[in-house]
Design a protein around this nucleic acid. Structure first.
Lengths: 223, 223
DNA sequence: AACAATTGTGAAAAATTTTTCATTATTAAT
DNA sequence: ATTAATAATGAAAAATTTTTCACAATTGTT
């Protein structure tokens, strides 16, 4: 089910939105200012943020900007009473995904939210972790300075680790799921590839992400 | 560089858009009706379609619908003089990506186009052509029955061809753009890779997609 | 038809990636 | 501390991919 964060200080609008969303079966949370919003955002998962432009303390566009700076790509829709073009351009430049001018109908909000979320869900093209990023299209691993290309198997292994963070994974499972080998524990490909991958990871960050759990397998820890 | 298709029967608007785009360095093509648009779309690559709602023969929304039915996910922005909400919802339901109400400024068009294309480029995970599909994540080429893995360079080459369908591409350009070689016409890597790729393509479909243009280069034709 | 230019091909060389193997290092348990 | 099990490592073998090369085939032009 979908989780919406509404950030809007006009309580009438906020409450009416909340009710409408809930009648559609969406979960939603309301904040009345930008500061509170940033707080909530940093500690909770949402599928989309609905931000009013003019809100107390930290403006909607500023929230938008900070969210993107923290590498959070959750879709953002801005609400505003201003309809002049300059603002729209500013909004897109700060990484907003859509823009709705007041007054709006709830149906329009719903349509735009669905469009934006559907798009986002099928769009994740990088996996971010710590201060690194794995590009799923280019098969590269990058920090803010360097970008290295990972060979096939190292890429697949890292992707698997990232999608199974913080749980112990046995070599057999890796053989199965990553290598798709017909059950062969007489090989140490996994060990060797882990070694290669560790080496590449250490080139970009000193941290040790892949921990060995003696007798059990590996575990990928982000922090 | 970006390729825009403008479908708009009001020639004044169409031409003004075309000029503005060209001064931004975008390539663009204009059609004055929906029928022609569908024709052009099926034989040429564009990064985005800018469709007026009310155009002769086949309406903008109908073009939108048919484009999506043919499995083409190119971003679509609809232009319209009508501002009522029902149409917006209809537009999104038919798979439009954005919606601009007339009158608009060129800057707004530009901002929305860039937003939509940026989103799309990072979101697309397959390129469909004919009855084949290139999976950009798995680097596989598939028809309804078989799936083959393409090695790196064959994959990159095919992707490049698909993004530049129906135009002649010289070997030098391919060396530059796909191989990123520092200008070397003393090699025939391109020829050889084309050969490999042709072989794989023929495994999945009898058609000959990559045509040679004697003395000029190659051209990828979808139909 | 003869030609020069251009393109296609098979095979092998070169480069890269993947896997194996023998050995060393580390771990947990006695 | 010793030991047996498990993991890490360096180096090389095997497999795959990329690139080169020499030659054959095709094309457009005369």
């Amino acid at each position: 089910m979908m989780n919406v964060l509404i950030v809007e200080d006009e309580k009438q609008i906020a409450n009416s939105l909340k009710k409408s969303f809930e009648s559609e079966g969406y979960d939603c949370e309301v904040c009345y200012d930008g500061e509170r919003a940033l707080d909530v955002i940093s500690s909770q998962y949402f599928d989309v943020f609905l931000l009013d432009w003019r809100i107390p303390k930290v403006s909607g566009i500023e929230v938008c900007k900070r969210v993107r700076e923290s590498n959070n790509q959750t879709p953002i829709i801005l609400l505003t009473a201003l309809s002049d073009v300059k603002n729209k351009i500013e909004a897109f430049n700060y990484g907003a995904d859509d823009y709705i001018t007041k007054p709006f109908s709830f149906e329009e909000v719903l349509a735009r939210i669905n469009a934006v979320v559907r798009r986002y869900k099928t769009s994740v093209s990088t996996i971010e972790f710590d201060n690194l990023s794995l590009n799923l299209i280019k098969h590269t691993l990058q920090n803010s300075e360097v970008e290295v290309k990972l060979p096939e198997m190292e890429f697949e292994l890292l992707r698997y680790f990232l999608e199974h963070r913080a749980s112990i994974i046995s070599r057999e499972k890796l053989c199965d799921d990553v290598w798709k080998l017909p059950y062969t524990p007489t090989t140490n490909v996994v060990d060797v590839t882990v070694k290669h991958l560790r080496y590449k990871l250490e080139e970009l960050s000193e941290k040790k992400y892949i921990k060995t759990v003696y007798g059990e397998g590996y575990i990928f820890i982000t922090e």
